[in-house]
Design a binder for these strands. Structure first.
Length: 654
DNA sequence: CTAGGGTTAG
């Protein structure tokens, strides 16, 4: 407030200025072209005004505030419509809602308050400051609206999680007879994409064609992105190919779409095409491509893209670094993940969370604890995802006490646990064999347990062979989520391992009758930049004979050093020999045999599987790692298993 | 005055 008084004194002393307005004008034209805001202020106001000579005050006061000091100086303010507009634009650019409101009030009292253009700017200002209620109010109260008014409001909604409102407004706009332009289409397409509404998107696409905007880069890119978000990649590709003038954004929309769909190979291929076409990949591109590589566990291609990024000179900021870290972690290279983490220019909360997730996936307990505690000391404030990551990591590493302690710690950080935190704690207790405690924990939860909570308990019952509690948990899962095949299989396995074959059969039958489908298991292995996929009992593979021979060979060797097949993981109704036969050709075994045949001796073997590894394969892999003296890294849906010299990093605990 | 693309958990 003292500042205001100073300025007021200055303002009432005309010998210092010609007018407040001319100063304000200069202020803007000068500041707009200057590097740092305080520097601009100093240059402009360095000598004549007392308060502005105070350098400390000057440093603390950004331009927006200084400006407002002039504006609230009542009598001195006599702006024209274009000055109001400039002021509002600055407030928008700097996202300064408070100052924007002051200008708004002043504007309302002026004789220009009915002018359409500054009102449009006001709508945009409030929208960019995430204050849609205010934006709407301006829109409703302005006497005359044009197409820009509608577009600014629609854009505001589509950028502030108001896709539905945006689309409703769009139809209303058409009813009032306003023609949408390329800006309008860009925004409504974004809204349709956010709602994943392909039907709406196609209609809008028709509108774009009619109005001749289909090949506008902005509209075209928005179309590509809209189709990508609706999962309609083919239609997106058609629009993309038609674009005579593409840019990075068009490419990114396409690449990100495939990355989101888990189509990593296509995303990588497009990345190459983009570069060949002479387009410079941006932060967005790299971020998507790394996510795509992480998804398919493609370490070598990921490294190759990383080299491109280093060559292109892009800095390792959090937004790309986080996905890069995640890519290395999910591709099995935890050391590279840590290196990226250490080299990040600035770590944000997602960086720490990603690092904790990496440790969780690899079951590294000591590192988890160190990382979390370092974060509490020197890092950003942990959020609810942080605790999820840390709790999952404790669960995967068998750190029961640490996990329970972190759960208690959430209170200190004033973070209310959501359902996923409870799921993780049930998992933590259950894995540790504390089944009764897990059950008690569920009963005492302050929120209603979901299917996921019971599923965690069921999984623990399978692990610790607890039939009675397993049945109880399964009943809850069936009731809450009848379409998931996982619980049926788990329960059937629990029955089978307890020798209750007829019950196991009953559950299987129930599953088949209710139309619940089991996801077909498959595994991938990467050999020299090519990814090879295997399904169980694959007879169609060109190398099937060699793979079979190799595996039989290996089986003989591991049996010599103590491997005994455990057939309780396969369907009970086959006879014993047939079961053993079946087990021989689980997809991960085929992938392993293939890798042994086709990769250089001594190099690590990286296999990925789409469901959890079965217990018998896990045992077999441990023996194989010893017999062939190779490191085998297996990624399943849950985590990584590093097999080395006869044991696994998960400590048989997954 | 109004437009399009990216990250962590389960």
């Amino acid at each position: 407030m003292t500042k205001a008084i100073h300025v007021k004194n200055c303002a009432t002393n005309p010998s210092n200025f010609n007018s407040i307005i001319s100063i304000a004008r200069q202020f803007f034209s000068a500041v707009a072209g200057l590097e740092s805001e305080p520097e601009g202020v100093r240059k402009l106001f360095g000598s004549p005004i007392g308060v502005l000579q105070d350098k400390d005050l000057l440093k603390k006061a950004p331009n927006g505030e200084l400006l407002v000091l002039y504006l609230i100086d009542n009598g001195a303010m006599d702006a024209d419509a274009s000055l109001y507009n400039q002021l509002l634009k600055k407030c928008t650019e700097w996202k300064r809602l408070k100052e924007g409101r002051v200008v708004h009030e002043h504007f309302l009292r002026s004789r220009f308050s009915h002018y359409t253009v500054p009102n449009n700017t006001l709508i945009n200002m409030y929208a960019k400051c995430e204050s849609m209620g205010d934006a709407r109010k301006v829109f409703d109260e302005m006497p005359e609206r044009d197409m820009v008014s509608w577009t600014a409001l629609i854009t505001g909604y589509s950028q502030n999680e108001g896709a539905k409102e945006g689309l409703v407004l769009f139809t209303e706009m058409l009813r009032f007879g306003f023609m949408p332009n390329q800006f309008t289409f860009g925004s409504v397409l974004k809204a349709a994409g956010a709602l994943e509404s392909g039907g709406t998107g196609r209609q809008l696409h028709g509108g774009c064609v009619k109005c001749g905007y289909e090949e506008n880069v902005y509209v075209g890119s928005a179309l590509v992105d809209m189709y990508a978000r609706c999962g309609l990649m083919d239609e997106g590709k058609i629009v993309f190919d038609k674009l005579s003038c593409k840019n990075e954004v068009s490419w990114n929309g396409l690449i990100a779409g495939h990355a989101r769909k888990g189509e990593g190979e296509i995303a990588l291929k497009l990345f190459c095409e983009m570069k060949r076409g002479g387009f410079q990949p941006t932060h967005f591109t790299f971020s998507s491509v790394y996510a795509a590589c992480a998804n398919i566990g493609a370490l070598e291609p990921g490294k190759w893209v990383h080299v491109h990024m280093i060559k292109s000179g892009l800095e390792l900021i959090a937004f790309i670094g986080n996905t890069l870290l995640d890519m290395y972690a999910k591709s099995g290279s935890i050391d590279d993940a840590r290196k990226v983490f250490d080299r990040l220019l600035k770590k944000d909360v997602v960086s720490w969370n990603s690092m904790l997730t990496a440790y969780a996936q690899h079951g590294l307990g000591k590192e988890t604890v160190e990382c979390f505690e370092e974060m509490c000391r020197i890092g950003p404030e942990p959020n609810e995802v942080t605790f999820l990551c840390a709790l999952t990591a404790c669960s995967h590493a068998g750190l029961l006490d640490n996990g329970m302690h972190y759960f208690e710690l959430m209170k200190k950080f004033k973070i209310e646990p959501i359902i996923s935190h409870y799921v993780t704690i049930v998992d933590l207790l259950g894995r540790s064999g504390q089944l009764d405690r897990a059950e008690k924990f569920i009963n005492e939860m302050p929120i209603e347990p979901t299917a996921a909570v019971w599923k965690a308990l069921l999984g623990a019952c399978r692990m610790h062979k607890n039939l009675e509690l397993g049945v109880y948990a399964a009943e809850h899962v069936f009731e809450l989520d009848p379409h998931d095949s996982g619980p049926h299989i788990l329960l059937s396995n629990i029955y089978a391992s307890a020798g209750r074959r007829s019950d196991a059969a009953r559950v299987r039958k129930l599953m088949n009758q209710s139309g619940v489908k089991k996801e077909p298991a498959c595994s991938w292995v990467e050999i020299e930049n090519a990814v090879h996929m295997f399904v169980a009992n694959d007879d169609a593979h060109p190398q099937r004979e060699e793979i079979r021979n190799m595996w039989e060979n290996i089986t003989d060797k591991i049996k010599e050093i103590g491997y005994v097949p455990d057939t309780s993981h396969v369907l009970w109704f086959m006879d014993h020999q047939e079961r053993e036969e079946r087990l021989q050709y689980h997809s991960e075994r085929l992938a392993l045999a293939f890798a042994l045949l086709n990769s250089p001796h001594g190099s690590p073997i990286r296999i990925k599987k789409n469901i959890r590894v079965c217990g018998d394969c896990h045992t077999a892999f441990k023996f194989v790692s010893k017999v062939v003296d190779r490191e085998i890294i297996l990624r399943d849906t849950n985590r990584f298993h590093h097999f080395r010299n006869g044991s696994c990093s998960c400590g048989d605990y997954w």
